[in-house]
């Protein structure tokens, strides 16, 4: 559904307990839409959820209590179809994630994401959370921590991820296009997960003035060194591979365009699929090459 990012951010900020809001930030499509709201047609975007990254995921009990508090304030569960709350015996990979409808919403929910440990190796780990005696999970993506670098202030009581850092996390998450497809159709298409995420990277790059992108590489290096002190050079040097594969694959590029356009980040700009490939070329020359050079030099 089409929603105004500013309105959503305002309502979320007012509905989340202040100390929870202070220890969390918004990432994903809502963060991108809020940052670029001036470019959205009618200042609206198409989204169904907000990713809330919680800094204190290490304190699982704390997040459990916070969730109970939200439920007592009128928030309601949004269970994925094939999952139900588990017990201490349920493997963590089979537990449902914490997805909650805010009071008054039935088609927009928040999902808690955890912040990883420094140098996490698994692409997706899980944190076990107990809420009112039932067991749930919080996904902890390997590169999500990078989005906590240089958090931006919405001015509404919630911080949100810098779009440049979301680009870094998405690029590192997809060194190859792979074959994993989205579980939910986007505009009638079951798109490649990588095409969706890399399409968002290109949309953000297209919406950011190129003069501003010149500063991305150094910020990326600093964040990568913090979160991956042992392997930042190796990770950084292969950052362009997924995007290069996307640019060479007309079908995947079409899906990237489809998802970025469907989300609402591109329609106002009338960007064609060919022009999206041009954005990839610009991003490669402006940011990725200087970044790789910085990562590989002695």
């Amino acid at each position: 559904m089409d929603l105004e990012p500013r309105s959503l951010m305002t309502r979320l900020a007012s509905m989340l307990p202040p100390d929870l809001a202070a220890g969390a930030y918004v990432a994903g499509s809502l963060a991108a839409g809020f940052h670029f709201e001036g470019h959205l047609p009618r200042r609206e975007m198409r989204t169904k959820d907000a990713d809330i990254v919680v800094h204190t995921i290490g304190a699982h009990d704390e997040l459990g209590r916070r969730t109970e508090e939200l439920l007592s304030r009128g928030w309601t569960w949004n269970y994925p179809k094939k999952f139900s709350p588990g017990s201490a015996e349920t493997p963590v990979g089979e537990l449902p994630f914490i997805r909650l409808f805010p009071p008054g919403f039935s088609d927009f929910f928040i999902e808690f994401l955890g912040e990883p440990a420094i140098g996490q190796q698994e692409a997706k780990a899980h944190g076990r959370i107990v809420v009112s005696g039932a067991h749930y999970a919080v996904p902890v993506f390997r590169f999500i921590g990078l989005t906590s670098w240089n958090l931006l202030d919405s001015g509404l009581g919630l911080k949100y991820a810098d779009p440049a850092m979301m680009c870094l996390a998405n690029l590192l998450s997809h060194p190859r296009l792979g074959t994993t497809r989205m579980e939910t159709d986007i505009g009638g298409t079951a798109c490649l997960r990588s095409a969706k995420d890399l399409g968002r990277v290109l949309a953000i790059a297209r919406l950011t003035p190129r003069g501003e992108q010149d500063a991305w590489a150094e910020r990326w290096v600093q964040a990568l060194m913090k979160w991956f002190p042992q392997e930042w050079r190796q990770l950084g040097s292969s950052i362009a591979s997924g995007l290069e594969e996307l640019a060479r694959d007309p079908a995947a590029l079409g899906e990237a365009h489809h998802t970025a356009a469907h989300l609402g980040l591109l329609p106002g700009l009338r960007v064609s699929v060919e022009q999206l490939a041009g954005v990839a070329s610009e991003l490669n020359h402006d940011v990725l090459r200087p970044f790789i050079e910085r990562c590989t030099r002695g």
Partner: peptide, 15 residues
């Protein structure tokens, strides 16, 4: 021309 369809940005190129 810019392959991305961005409007020309002469000041950026001059920079």
């Amino acid at each position: 021309v810019s392959p991305s369809g961005r409007p020309p940005d002469p000041e950026f190129l001059l920079g």
